[in-house]
C-alpha cells in the first residue's frame, strides 16, 4: 500500500465507508449522479480498495470524483454497508490537501464554493444568506424570488422573520462573539488553512490565464464542457 492510500485511510469517512466492496454495482445503479455524469461509484470504490497509489493519484486528479452530489443514496442499498459517498468525500479532501484538485475543471470550482459559502459562515453565521443569493445568479429561482429579493426586508418582516435583527428568530443577526467563536474553530481545525490553500491555488491559476479574480470566478461559475455528461 502506498503513501496516498495510507493518508486516505486516516480519514474517518473512509474507515466508516469502506468494508470490502464486492463490486456488485448496486451503488451505481441507484446513483443520481451516475445517470447524468460519466460517473461510476462502483469503479471508484474498486480503485480505492486496490491500494495502488498511482491509481489513487489518478482519481485525485480526475473529474469523476467531483460528480457525486453527496445525497448518500448509495449507503442505503449497499449490501455490504459501504458508503461510496463518504469515500468520495475522503478523496475530495485528499485531492484538496495535495493540491491535485487544480488538475480538473470540476475540482477548480472549489474556489467559488470555498469563498462564497465560508464568507457567509464567518460573516453571518449561515451557509446561505438571502442577501447574497441574487436573482441574477439564480434566474431559476423565478420571478417570485426576483420580487422577494428586491423587497427582502419587507417580505421577511411580513412573514415574521427577524432578518439581521437582534434576539432569536429566522435569519437573525448572529452575535459578534459567536462569529468570533466560529473563526477560532476554523483556525484550530484546519479550515482556515484549507481555505487559504484553495484561494492561493485559484489566484495563481487566474494569473496564469491572465484573468482578474472576478473574471476567473465568472469563468468557473458559468463555463462547463459537455465532456462530463453521459450522452456526450
Amino acid at each position: 500500500m502506498g503513501k496516498l492510500y495510507d493518508k486516505l485511510m486516516e480519514d474517518y469517512r473512509l474507515k466508516e465507508g469502506l468494508n470490502a466492496c464486492i463490486n456488485c454495482g448496486t451503488c451505481t445503479a441507484i446513483c443520481p449522479a451516475a445517470e447524468f455524469y460519466k460517473y461510476d461509484p462502483r469503479r471508484i470504490v474498486d480503485m480505492v480498495q486496490s491500494g495502488d497509489d498511482s491509481v489513487i493519484e489518478e482519481l485525485l486528479k480526475s473529474e469523476t470524483i467531483w460528480y457525486c452530489g453527496e445525497c448518500m443514496s448509495c449507503v442505503t442499498r449497499c449490501p455490504r454497508k459501504n458508503a461510496a459517498g463518504l469515500i468520495i468525500m475522503a478523496l475530495r479532501n485528499l485531492s484538496i490537501e495535495t493540491g491535485l484538485f487544480m488538475e480538473s475543471e470540476k475540482g477548480r470550482q472549489m474556489y467559488i464554493l470555498a469563498k462564497d459559502l465560508n464568507h457567509n459562515v464567518l460573516n453571518y453565521g449561515y451557509c446561505v444568506y438571502p442577501r447574497n443569493f441574487p436573482y441574477e445568479g439564480h434566474p431559476e429561482a423565478g420571478p417570485v424570488w426576483e420580487w422577494e429579493h428586491a423587497h427582502l426586508d419587507d417580505v421577511f418582516e411580513r412573514l415574521g422573520a427577524n432578518l439581521d435583527g437582534d434576539g432569536p428568530g429566522a435569519m437573525r443577526k448572529i452575535p459578534a462573539e459567536n462569529l468570533e467563536q466560529l473563526k477560532r474553530i476554523y483556525d484550530i481545525t484546519g479550515a482556515t488553512e484549507r481555505l487559504e490553500k484553495i484561494k492561493q491555488a485559484g489566484l495563481k491559476k487566474a494569473a496564469e490565464l491572465g484573468l482578474t479574480e472576478e473574471e476567473y470566478i465568472q469563468k468557473l461559475y458559468t463555463e462547463g464542457t459537455k465532456m462530463h455528461l453521459n450522452h456526450c
Binding site: A114, L117, T189
Partner: peptide, 14 residues
C-alpha cells in the same frame, strides 16, 4: 456548517 462541509470546503473536524 453542513452545506460548506458537503461542498467539501471545510474539514470534518471543523
Amino acid at each position: 456548517g453542513g452545506i460548506a462541509y458537503h461542498s467539501d470546503t471545510i474539514p470534518q473536524e471543523t
